[in-house]
């Protein structure tokens, strides 16, 4: 998006790019299969997509969100405006349970496939996650990351990268 100076922000940006690509594939699956028309969860391309969605969301709602809330939002509030991180944190609170539910349905579908009921729930929850997450990423990509890139000092980059690696490793 923007030529980001700091490595930690580039890492978060790359995760956003990957997430949007997965969400676009998810939206295509939902568009191709209405809420009453479950796809075959064992079919190779569907199974691969479900695995990718589960991996991306699982990682996003744990490490990515947690890192932002623990390390970046407080810094942004300190340097600029406390209202914005609070808004983004509230969006995390909205997306988190939806993403967790979606990952749980995927885990169940892996073994049992989709029933009409589970697919209908997946369809509604998946659509909502895709929309809300894309809107959230839009705000972070256009605002949070470029703003932090202008405000943070270069010597903060290394410790932040280390902290993120540790958070992911832990």
């Amino acid at each position: 998006m923007f030529a980001l100076r700091l490595g930690i922000l580039r890492s978060l940006h790359e995760e956003h790019v990957a997430m949007l690509a997965v969400l676009e594939r998810l939206e295509n699956l939902l568009a191709a299969n209405g809420p009453r028309n479950p796809p075959d969860a064992t079919e190779e391309s569907v199974a691969k997509l479900l695995a990718d969605v589960a991996a991306a969301l699982g990682d996003d709602v744990t490490h990515h969100y947690a890192f932002e809330e623990a390390r970046l939002f407080p810094r942004f509030a300190e340097l600029a405006d406390p209202g914005i991180p609070e808004m983004l944190r509230q969006e995390h609170e909205i997306i988190r349970p939806l993403a967790e539910r979606l990952v749980a349905i995927i885990a169940q579908a892996k073994t049992d496939g989709f029933t009409t009921a589970t697919w209908a729930e997946f369809h509604g929850t998946g659509g909502e996650v895709a929309e809300r997450e894309a809107f959230h990423i839009q705000k972070e990509e256009m605002g949070l990351l470029p703003a932090l890139d202008q405000m943070l000092e270069e010597d903060e980059d290394g410790p932040l990268q280390m902290a993120y690696v540790e958070m992911k490793g832990g």
Binding site: A80, G83, I84, K139, E141, M142, G143, A147, Q150
Partner: peptide, 14 residues
């Protein structure tokens, strides 16, 4: 801050 997304940051406050 002068980047297009400044339209978002501070949007709620302003």
């Amino acid at each position: 801050m002068s980047f297009p997304g400044a339209v978002l940051m501070g949007a709620q406050a302003r």
